[in-house]
Simulated scan of single mutants.
Amino acid sequence: MARKPGLLMAQLLNRFIWFDAALQKSLDIRGHGGVRRLESMCMVYVHAGIRRPSELARLLGVTRQSVNTALRELEAKGLVYLEPDPEDARCKLVHFAPEGAVMREEALDIVMALEAALEENLGRKAVDDLARLVSADWGEAPVIGKKGVGKAKERKKKSA
Protein backbone atom coordinates (compact mmCIF):
# COMPACT_ATOMS: atom_id res chain seq x y z
CA MET A 1 0.00 0.00 0.00
CA ALA A 2 1.38 3.40 -0.97
CA ARG A 3 2.00 5.95 1.76
CA LYS A 4 -0.42 8.86 1.76
CA PRO A 5 1.43 12.07 2.65
CA GLY A 6 0.08 13.81 5.73
CA LEU A 7 -1.33 10.69 7.39
CA LEU A 8 1.72 9.27 9.17
CA MET A 9 0.91 10.97 12.47
CA ALA A 10 -2.65 9.58 12.45
CA GLN A 11 -1.37 6.14 11.48
CA LEU A 12 1.16 6.10 14.32
CA LEU A 13 -1.53 7.20 16.77
CA ASN A 14 -3.93 4.52 15.47
CA ARG A 15 -1.29 1.83 16.02
CA PHE A 16 -0.64 3.05 19.56
CA ILE A 17 -4.39 2.89 20.22
CA TRP A 18 -4.39 -0.65 18.73
CA PHE A 19 -1.79 -1.68 21.32
CA ASP A 20 -3.43 0.11 24.23
CA ALA A 21 -6.97 -1.08 23.41
CA ALA A 22 -5.77 -4.68 23.13
CA LEU A 23 -3.88 -4.35 26.42
CA GLN A 24 -6.88 -2.79 28.21
CA LYS A 25 -9.35 -5.41 26.92
CA SER A 26 -6.97 -8.24 27.75
CA LEU A 27 -6.36 -6.94 31.26
CA ASP A 28 -10.10 -6.50 31.72
CA ILE A 29 -10.92 -10.13 30.84
CA ARG A 30 -8.17 -11.22 33.25
CA GLY A 31 -9.78 -9.24 36.05
CA HIS A 32 -7.42 -6.24 36.01
CA GLY A 33 -9.65 -3.69 34.33
CA GLY A 34 -10.27 -0.11 35.24
CA VAL A 35 -7.00 1.49 34.15
CA ARG A 36 -7.53 4.58 32.01
CA ARG A 37 -5.34 5.30 28.96
CA LEU A 38 -3.32 8.03 30.74
CA GLU A 39 -2.73 5.69 33.67
CA SER A 40 -1.62 2.97 31.27
CA MET A 41 0.74 5.39 29.53
CA CYS A 42 2.23 6.43 32.89
CA MET A 43 2.80 2.76 33.73
CA VAL A 44 4.59 2.20 30.41
CA TYR A 45 6.97 5.09 31.10
CA VAL A 46 7.56 4.03 34.72
CA HIS A 47 8.42 0.57 33.35
CA ALA A 48 10.91 2.32 31.04
CA GLY A 49 12.56 3.96 34.08
CA ILE A 50 10.90 7.40 34.14
CA ARG A 51 10.27 8.17 37.81
CA ARG A 52 9.55 11.91 38.12
CA PRO A 53 5.93 13.03 37.61
CA SER A 54 7.14 16.22 35.91
CA GLU A 55 9.08 14.15 33.36
CA LEU A 56 6.05 11.90 32.81
CA ALA A 57 3.94 15.00 32.10
CA ARG A 58 6.52 16.34 29.65
CA LEU A 59 6.86 13.05 27.77
CA LEU A 60 3.10 12.49 27.65
CA GLY A 61 2.35 16.06 26.62
CA VAL A 62 -0.12 16.65 29.43
CA THR A 63 -0.20 18.89 32.48
CA ARG A 64 1.48 17.95 35.74
CA GLN A 65 -1.97 18.11 37.32
CA SER A 66 -3.24 15.42 34.90
CA VAL A 67 -0.27 13.17 35.68
CA ASN A 68 -0.65 13.73 39.42
CA THR A 69 -4.34 12.78 39.18
CA ALA A 70 -3.46 9.63 37.22
CA LEU A 71 -0.73 8.72 39.71
CA ARG A 72 -3.10 9.22 42.68
CA GLU A 73 -5.59 6.88 40.96
CA LEU A 74 -2.86 4.30 40.28
CA GLU A 75 -1.76 4.62 43.91
CA ALA A 76 -5.35 4.05 45.10
CA LYS A 77 -5.44 0.90 42.92
CA GLY A 78 -2.25 -0.39 44.58
CA LEU A 79 -0.21 -0.19 41.38
CA VAL A 80 2.29 2.54 42.24
CA TYR A 81 3.49 4.51 45.23
CA LEU A 82 5.21 7.87 45.51
CA GLU A 83 8.13 8.64 47.77
CA PRO A 84 10.26 11.73 48.29
CA ASP A 85 13.10 12.23 45.82
CA PRO A 86 16.38 11.98 47.77
CA GLU A 87 17.96 14.51 45.35
CA ASP A 88 15.15 17.08 45.56
CA ALA A 89 12.87 17.18 48.60
CA ARG A 90 10.29 19.19 46.64
CA CYS A 91 9.76 16.28 44.23
CA LYS A 92 8.43 12.77 44.44
CA LEU A 93 9.48 9.61 42.61
CA VAL A 94 7.09 6.99 41.26
CA HIS A 95 7.71 3.33 42.04
CA PHE A 96 5.74 0.20 41.28
CA ALA A 97 3.84 -1.11 44.29
CA PRO A 98 4.50 -4.74 45.22
CA GLU A 99 0.72 -5.34 45.34
CA GLY A 100 0.50 -4.67 41.61
CA ALA A 101 3.17 -7.21 40.61
CA VAL A 102 0.70 -9.80 39.27
CA MET A 103 -1.07 -7.23 37.09
CA ARG A 104 2.25 -5.85 35.78
CA GLU A 105 3.50 -9.35 34.92
CA GLU A 106 0.26 -10.09 33.09
CA ALA A 107 0.44 -6.74 31.25
CA LEU A 108 4.00 -7.53 30.13
CA ASP A 109 2.89 -10.99 28.97
CA ILE A 110 0.06 -9.38 26.99
CA VAL A 111 2.37 -6.81 25.38
CA MET A 112 4.84 -9.54 24.43
CA ALA A 113 1.98 -11.58 22.94
CA LEU A 114 0.85 -8.51 20.97
CA GLU A 115 4.38 -8.11 19.61
CA ALA A 116 4.37 -11.81 18.66
CA ALA A 117 1.01 -11.31 16.90
CA LEU A 118 2.54 -8.42 14.95
CA GLU A 119 5.43 -10.66 13.91
CA GLU A 120 2.95 -13.29 12.79
CA ASN A 121 0.90 -10.77 10.80
CA LEU A 122 3.68 -8.56 9.43
CA GLY A 123 6.80 -10.73 9.60
CA ARG A 124 9.73 -10.51 11.98
CA LYS A 125 11.79 -8.26 9.70
CA ALA A 126 8.97 -5.70 9.45
CA VAL A 127 8.55 -5.64 13.25
CA ASP A 128 12.32 -5.39 13.76
CA ASP A 129 12.41 -2.51 11.23
CA LEU A 130 9.49 -0.83 13.00
CA ALA A 131 11.21 -1.14 16.38
CA ARG A 132 14.43 0.26 14.92
CA LEU A 133 12.62 3.20 13.33
CA VAL A 134 10.60 4.22 16.37
CA SER A 135 13.68 3.77 18.61
CA ALA A 136 15.92 5.88 16.37
CA ASP A 137 16.91 9.39 17.41
CA TRP A 138 14.58 11.61 15.38
CA GLY A 139 16.25 14.71 16.79
CA GLU A 140 14.51 17.53 18.55
CA ALA A 141 10.96 18.14 17.34
CA PRO A 142 11.30 20.92 14.76
CA VAL A 143 9.30 24.11 14.75
CA ILE A 144 7.78 24.56 11.33
CA GLY A 145 7.56 28.22 10.36
CA LYS A 146 5.87 29.59 7.29
CA LYS A 147 9.11 29.18 5.35
CA GLY A 148 9.68 25.54 6.26
CA VAL A 149 11.53 23.29 8.69
CA GLY A 150 14.11 24.92 10.89
CA LYS A 151 13.48 28.47 9.70
CA ALA A 152 12.09 29.52 13.08
CA LYS A 153 15.27 28.23 14.75
CA GLU A 154 17.45 30.19 12.30
CA ARG A 155 15.45 33.39 12.93
CA LYS A 156 15.86 32.89 16.67
CA LYS A 157 19.66 32.57 16.32
CA LYS A 158 19.87 35.72 14.16
CA SER A 159 17.85 37.79 16.61
CA ALA A 160 19.94 36.69 19.61
Rank of each mutant, 00 (worst) to 15 (best):
M1V: 07
M1K: 10
M1F: 11
A2R: 14
K4P: 01
P5A: 11
P5N: 03
G6N: 09
L7F: 08
M9V: 09
L13Q: 09
L13G: 00
L13V: 14
N14T: 06
N14W: 02
I17Q: 04
W18C: 01
W18F: 11
W18N: 08
D20I: 12
A21V: 11
A22N: 15
L23D: 01
Q24C: 07
L27I: 00
D28T: 02
I29Q: 06
R30I: 00
R30A: 15
G31K: 02
G33L: 08
G34H: 03
G34T: 08
R36C: 00
R37T: 12
R37L: 11
R37Q: 09
E39Q: 15
S40G: 14
C42A: 15
M43R: 04
M43T: 08
V44K: 07
Y45A: 05
I50E: 08
I50Y: 08
I50W: 02
R52N: 02
P53E: 06
S54Y: 03
L56D: 03
A57N: 06
R58C: 00
L59M: 12
L60E: 02
L60T: 02
G61C: 06
V62R: 14
R64W: 02
Q65M: 08
Q65E: 08
S66M: 12
V67L: 03
V67A: 02
N68E: 13
N68D: 15
L71R: 04
R72Y: 01
E73Q: 14
L74Q: 04
E75Q: 15
A76W: 04
K77H: 05
K77Y: 05
K77W: 03
V80W: 05
V80E: 01
Y81M: 05
Y81G: 06
L82R: 15
E83M: 10
P84S: 13
D85H: 02
P86S: 08
E87I: 00
E87Y: 06
E87P: 00
D88K: 05
A89M: 03
R90E: 13
C91R: 12
K92A: 09
K92C: 00
K92M: 06
H95T: 01
A97Y: 02
A97F: 05
P98H: 07
P98N: 06
E99T: 14
V102S: 13
V102I: 03
M103R: 10
E105P: 00
E106I: 10
I110H: 03
V111L: 15
V111D: 02
M112A: 14
A113H: 12
L114T: 05
L114G: 05
A116D: 15
A116R: 15
A117V: 03
A117N: 09
L118F: 02
E119I: 05
E120S: 11
N121R: 12
N121T: 04
G123H: 08
R124E: 15
K125F: 13
A126F: 09
A126Q: 13
A126M: 11
D128A: 14
D128Y: 03
R132V: 04
L133Y: 15
L133T: 06
L133A: 13
L133I: 12
V134N: 01
V134W: 06
S135L: 13
D137V: 02
W138S: 12
W138I: 13
W138E: 05
G139H: 07
G139E: 04
G145L: 04
K146A: 12
K147M: 06
K147I: 01
G148Q: 04
G148F: 08
G148L: 04
G148C: 11
V149S: 04
G150R: 05
A152I: 04
K156H: 07
K156G: 03
K156Y: 14
K157P: 00
K158S: 08
S159D: 10
